[in-house]
Amino acid sequence: MVDRAVAFCPGHISGYFRRVKGTSVQTTGSIGAGIVISAGVEATATPADRPQVLVREVDRTGTCRTVLTASPPIAYVMDRLGVAAAVTTVCTLPIGAGFGLSAAALLSATAALNALYDLGLSAHEVTALAHEAEIVHQTGLGDVSACQGGGLVCREGPGPDGTIGRICGPAAQPLCAVTFGPLPTPAVLQSGPAMAAVEAAFPARCPDDLVDFFGLSRQFAERSGLITPEVRHALSLCDDAGVPASMTMLGNGVFASGDRALEVLSTAGEPYHLEIASGGFSVLEHAS
């Protein structure tokens, strides 16, 4: 055992998805496409007599914006591993805004715990446990599977073992996003009518490239019935400027691509500059 372990996991913006109910937790999740983004969650784990979790959301200057003193999914992971630790997660993007931060927090925390106590879990086992925690607590469906690696991702099967295609490499166009507050994921996932609309809106194919991804994502957003008034306004601004854009799933926000994306979204809110991640979660530090 070491005295401290730090891990990082990138976030994920889902463009479109369809829920899949499998025969087990590992075969339950979703299929669809999204972008793994370089911003995400860093988790630090240190030994403790009892499980403790601190969730910190910081702003662009590094000032703490939100602090939560509990995370049932991360506590669940510690219980499943049979360990106790003090885990602190830090993110610079807003929580609950469709950036896949619950998955990123679970993956980074699980990886840090694995390193802290030298548990010997493989990357696949870390992913499987994080996916299990997310499904059990209904904080997401497919972000964990996507964040195993980087790039533009298409998940053709549910869970960590599902078929996943990735288009990696630098984005041809700049990416940015703006958020208008949280859209509670559990509330949507537990709504029968909302999930029925999502099912009907799902485009049944993988995108060919980033341009195609935005087109399929926007088609899904329009047909899903999830677009909020704030999102509609931002999308209209993008449409008027000829900027490819869609709604972050599931989040009350918009992500866009192109040279004018940052300029246009700046008129709707304070945008975040994003990059496509080249890889998935990793351990940054484990030392005595």
Score class of each variant (00 low, 15 high):
V2F: 06
R4E: 08
A7M: 11
F8S: 15
P10S: 07
G11C: 12
I13V: 08
S14F: 13
F17M: 13
G22V: 06
T23C: 12
Q26N: 13
A39F: 13
A43E: 00
T44D: 03
P47R: 04
A48Q: 13
D49F: 09
P51S: 08
R60N: 15
R65N: 15
V67D: 15
S71K: 00
V77I: 04
L81N: 02
A85N: 09
A86I: 10
A86K: 05
V90F: 03
T92M: 08
A104T: 04
A104W: 02
A105E: 01
L106D: 06
L107Q: 06
S108P: 05
A109K: 02
A111F: 10
D118P: 14
L119M: 14
V126D: 10
T127C: 12
A128M: 14
E132L: 15
A133K: 04
E134Y: 13
V136E: 10
T139Y: 12
T139C: 12
A146V: 03
G150T: 05
L152T: 04
C154H: 10
E156P: 07
G157W: 05
G157L: 11
G162T: 09
G162M: 09
R166T: 02
C168D: 09
C168P: 05
A171S: 10
A172D: 04
Q173Y: 03
P174V: 01
P182Y: 00
P186I: 01
L189R: 01
Q190E: 11
G192Y: 11
A197H: 04
F202G: 02
A204R: 04
A204I: 11
C206F: 02
D208K: 09
D208S: 06
F214Q: 00
Q219Y: 10
E222T: 05
E230I: 03
L237D: 01
L237A: 08
D239C: 09
V243E: 00
P244Y: 05
M247Q: 07
M249K: 12
L250D: 08
N252D: 13
V254L: 14
V254C: 11
S257Y: 15
G258S: 04
A261E: 02
L262C: 15
V264E: 04
T267I: 11
P271K: 01
E275I: 14
I276Q: 07
F281P: 01
L284N: 06
